[in-house]
């Protein structure tokens, strides 16, 4: 996707990265009504729609921050598709399978599908990592967190009162444990099989 030219609506992605409230407002004015109407039509209410919109915008921001999201389609198509899928996932998770969805979930816009897929995969991967992070020991979490916050291992070692060599080894083992857990999780395997 790196070679593709970004769509002019890339500015909305940049707006999220730059915390540009004028454009964020524009997103709400232009497209939130459509999301609210869709969710209301499909067993939800306005406050649920508000949450879906908010979460969707934050996921887009996170992906853009970490991976440099390139939008190759209109923002509306991409954003609406993500909101729709998020709502459907919510209904599924809450065991409301009996509800009928008043729309097909595929979009005719292939570019929008692709960008939305990449965002969904990003979110899923993040979720797996966060989950497994909770499965490692408290001490490991602390070491990983500190080494990422304070980028110098030397400073962290001094702070913790251990040697540089010890800390370095400990960090790599904690990360190794986390790597094993992530790779061993079913969700991660499913994701890579797709």
């Amino acid at each position: 996707m790196k070679e593709s030219e970004p769509h002019e609506d890339q500015r909305y992605i940049d707006a999220l990265l730059n915390n540009d409230s004028v454009l964020v407002r524009e997103i709400y004015e232009k497209w939130s009504a459509k999301v609210v109407a869709y969710i209301k039509k499909n067993n939800g209410d306005e406050s649920q729609a508000r949450d879906v919109i908010q979460e969707t915008l934050l996921v887009i921001y996170r992906q853009a921050y970490e991976k440099g999201l390139v939008l190759t389609c209109p923002f509306e198509a991409y954003f609406f598709l993500l909101c729709k899928r998020r709502w459907l996932n919510y209904l599924k998770e809450n065991h409301r399978k009996e509800v009928t969805i008043d729309d097909e979930l595929t979009s005719l816009d292939i570019a929008a599908e692709q960008v939305a897929d990449s965002t969904e995969r990003y979110e899923l991967k993040s979720k797996i990592i966060e989950e497994q992070l909770n499965a490692i020991s408290e001490k490991c979490r602390e070491i990983i967190k500190l080494t990422l916050e304070i980028k110098s291992l030397q400073t962290v070692a001094e702070k913790l009162g251990v040697t540089y060599a010890y800390l370095r080894k400990k960090k790599s083992l904690c990360m190794g444990r986390l790597t094993e857990l992530v790779r061993g999780s079913n969700a991660f395997k499913n994701l890579n099989d797709q």
Partner: peptide
């Protein structure tokens, strides 16, 4: 994993600010 966790740490402040902006805009709009 490293890049994900690093990004999470680095964007912490930015994400908080954006959350606030979205919260304001959303409340005002609705």
């Amino acid at each position: 994993i490293n890049s994900h966790l690093q990004a999470r740490v680095d964007r912490k402040e930015g994400e908080e600010n954006l959350k606030r902006t979205i919260g304001h805009v959303s409340a005002g709009h609705f």
